Amino acid sequence: METSNVKGSNGNTLNEGDSVSLIKSLKVKGSTTTLKQGTTIKKIRLTDNDEEVDCKVDGMSVVLKTCFLKKK
Rank of each mutant, 00 (worst) to 15 (best):
M1S: 05
M1A: 06
E2N: 06
E2P: 11
E2R: 02
N5L: 14
N5R: 13
V6D: 04
V6H: 05
V6S: 05
S9E: 15
N10P: 00
G11I: 09
N12C: 10
N12H: 13
N12F: 13
N12R: 14
L14E: 06
L14A: 05
N15S: 10
N15G: 01
E16P: 00
D18A: 11
D18W: 10
V20Y: 07
L22I: 02
K24P: 00
K24M: 08
S25Y: 04
L26G: 00
V28E: 06
K29I: 15
G30D: 09
G30F: 04
T32S: 12
T33A: 10
K36D: 01
Q37P: 00
Q37I: 07
G38V: 04
G38E: 00
T39F: 03
K42S: 15
K42T: 15
K43C: 04
L46R: 01
T47W: 06
D48T: 13
D48H: 02
N49F: 10
N49Q: 11
E51V: 08
E51S: 15
V53P: 07
D54R: 11
K56H: 06
K56P: 01
V57M: 08
D58I: 00
G59D: 12
M60D: 13
S61R: 15
S61Y: 13
V63K: 14
L64Q: 09
L64Y: 11
K65R: 13
K65Y: 14
T66K: 13
C67H: 12
F68N: 13
L69N: 03
